[in-house]
Design a protein around this nucleic acid. Structure first.
Lengths: 174, 174
DNA sequence: ATTATTTATTTCATCAGTGAAATATGCACC
DNA sequence: GGTGCATATTTCACTGATGAAATAAATAAT
């Protein structure tokens, strides 16, 4: 069932739910909308990655390194940036290192720290991958005006701000 | 690291990536924004569900039944609506049935079809759950004006339309 | 009546991520 | 130099989803 049809289905179902739970705010639907679109977008990304035998977290980690000023970082830092557990990060580093996309060494001034460094091959890989994602990216945001883009960015950041506040208030109140 | 900080980190990293891959459209960032917010929102939902020992796909399936005019559907239909595989749907149905939230019977006119029917307990469960999600929902969309909501809905639907087109064009061209 | 198709289930193997606990190593403090 | 802390890795058990293939049961086609 296409995304459009699922949204149509959502619109209909939501009306019936509101009949039974009138307190349900309209925002619940916005929320589902975002999640539906997000899932689909995520699936699109992963399908681009699959042929290269990389999964999403591996690729994101690699791009994270690519985007560092010196192309390197430590597992601990990357755990923070990507909200991954340390166990996972070790696994990801293993996978990337085995494929020669990164190297692992030790920080000279603190030999406890591992430094993961993107290799030339890793950079080439990212530079080859990114354009492959362009076509669907352009299609996805087709007919977006500059004002649409600005609105979109603004709304996402507003959501992010609120969600961050939610995180902090989650420190269980008495 | 908070969502806000991750976005700040994204803003900085993106600039550096653009230095190396100038063709990368600004939309790539919008895309990551949406995915970041979507992930966080999804996590929020799942945390609400966890105490009830239901996972996301189980709950969504239950709500799907709740939203049907007669509170019932078949595994095949639900697979379409939720983009789940048949194997998964059987597992979900098992879980929901074991907890008494749905019943399973056979369609009278076509005994191959299983009909999953939400029970009174299932309805009560949904009606109890939904309000529990309200507080975070209200916080998430705090300071959204009605115009924000309309914009948001409009943009999501535009994305959905484009993504649906993408799906269809995915029918591998010669 | 036999064959083919549809629907659901079962079985099995696999992947990706999670989290806890134990281990190794190196640093910092004093 | 010994104690304690920080960093990363390993091991293990688990969750949730995924997909292929075999099976069962009922219906449709003819």
């Amino acid at each position: 069932m296409s995304l459009i049809n699922r949204i149509k289905h959502l619109d209909e179902g939501f009306e019936r739910i509101r009949k039974a739970v009138p307190e349900l705010p309209e925002d619940a639907k916005l929320c589902r909308l975002l999640l539906l679109v997000g899932e689909r977008l995520q699936a699109e990304f992963e399908s681009k990655l699959r042929p290269y035998k990389l999964n999403d977290s591996e690729f994101r980690t690699l791009v994270m390194l690519f985007s560092q000023p010196d192309g390197s970082s430590t597992p601990g830092e990357l755990c923070e940036f990507t909200s991954q557990g340390a166990t996972n990060m070790t696994r990801i580093a293993n996978a990337l290192a085995k494929r020669g996309l990164i190297t692992r060494g030790h920080n000279i001034t603190d030999r406890r720290q591992v430094v993961m460094q993107i290799t030339a091959a890793g950079r080439r890989f990212v530079q080859k991958m990114l354009p492959g994602m362009m076509p669907s990216l352009r299609l996805t945001f087709a007919e977006f005006t500059q004002s649409d883009r600005n609105q979109f960015s603004k709304l996402m950041r507003k959501l992010a701000k609120n969600l961050t506040q939610l995180e902090h208030e989650a420190g269980d109140p008495p």
